[in-house]
Design a protein around this nucleic acid. Structure first.
Lengths: 228, 228
DNA sequence: TTCATACTTCGATCGTAACCGAAGCATGTC
DNA sequence: GACATGCTTCGGTTACGATCGAAGTATGAA
């Protein structure tokens, strides 16, 4: 009858619209203050405070105090992965938002999924990496090839540093807008950081969408071509 | 602010304890009647009926009428995968049930995860298949090798029939009790059916746990050895 | 010290949805 | 036909939790 882990608890944590909005906002990867999250959730600061306490107690969030601010982030990438998978599930069943806002197209084109690139461009990047033989793919599994090691070296990624971390190097993550996989894991994170560092793209202030500069877009499309 | 798919909706569907219990019961893979699900959820038949209607509207369940019974199942294996991943997440954070019932050990040893084998035995089976070279694994991805084709043929699995289905042949599924992957997909389903057909194991009436016969257990352990 | 900002806690309100009893429908059995 | 079983719908109660105003605490700035 009552078997296994308590899925109802985390279901109800995600099930409240205000909390869901706050979690979605945190999928942008940036640490946000309680005040910012209150705005994201469309609620007052007091209400947000209680919600945040609950989310933290449920170990979905972690916080760190800095001065008189309290910065919240998702507890780890496991939370991000869970949220994205629920999004993919919801999108697949047509449980979409009632109002597809004006930002929607930009979000579908390129956005942050916790700490890596998602959306059309995210999917394109992985496709291109697989097609060019830099990454091996079996089903949902991904691995960097010898060829890929050189390739990422050229781009300016320190693979050896990444390998020493406990986090998996490559991970596929189901993209809710494209319904296909994009690259997550520490390599996915490193690539996105690399684009930011090079000035090819920047994150927006209030959204998860990623904006490419004209030059950055040109470089990106050239670096990750797709065959016709 | 309000970006992407509506995760709150499905969160709240799973967030109700009664509904969560019913969904968990359906993870056993068997079609259950409204009355049985009411018992599983610990609620009356009337209440269960409204819950089931909501779950069906949310396309988590599908039903088919048969005589005066109404049989419910999970809508598809995507729902099963989602539930198992939430279970894995919850288990990893210690969101376990308060009372670890007496059935718990049996459940951890071998259970049904929607339609394939999970638990200690499920993980062992996949490990053994990978170690013997029947299945290739890259990260979370799985694929049957040429060697594996012969192997499954011997066991009595019609791989060609499975390949023609739209469902992926191999899929890894995170096991909540073992915290490691076991084999899902149509091959995972076929293997479990095979064990049932051979009389090696049987499902229990009221639980998701799978009971092996002494002889079946012997054969299973011999067929899927693990190196010392 | 005084004031402002960031956040939490308390207290009370309010709305929703979970719940069940009772009645209604449908299907099968006798 | 009469009756039993399986399930749904209706109506009314209840309880929980989301919400916010107001007051309280902590940190930083003037």
């Amino acid at each position: 009858m009552k078997e296994g882990p308590d899925i109802a608890q985390i279901g109800s944590l995600i099930g409240d619209p205000a909390r869901a909005n706050m979690l979605t906002a945190l999928m942008g990867g940036k640490a946000l203050t309680a005040t910012e999250l209150a705005a994201a959730g469309g609620i007052t600061l007091q209400t947000a405070s209680t919600h945040l306490a609950k989310l933290e107690a449920g170990s979905l969030l972690s916080q760190r105090k800095q001065g008189r601010h309290r910065y919240f982030t998702l507890a780890d990438d496991g939370v991000g992965k869970l949220l994205e998978s629920i999004m993919g599930f919801a999108a697949g069943r047509g449980h979409l938002r009632h109002q597809p806002g004006p930002k929607e197209p930009a979000l579908r084109k390129a956005r942050i999924c916790y700490d890596h690139l998602a959306g059309d461009y995210g999917v394109r990047m992985l496709d291109s990496l697989v097609a060019s033989g830099a990454i091996d793919a079996i089903g949902d599994g991904l691995a960097v090839t010898a060829k890929g090691e050189d390739r990422f070296q050229c781009i300016g990624i320190d693979l050896h540093g990444l390998k020493s971390s406990r986090r998996p190097l490559c991970r596929s993550c189901l993209d809710w807008s494209e319904r296909r996989a994009h690259l997550a894991g520490s390599l996915g994170k490193a690539l996105l950081s690399n684009f930011f560092d090079k000035g090819w793209a920047r994150r927006t202030a209030e959204s998860r969408s990623v904006i490419f500069s004209p030059e950055g877009e040109r470089q990106f499309l050239q670096l990750f071509p797709v065959e016709a």
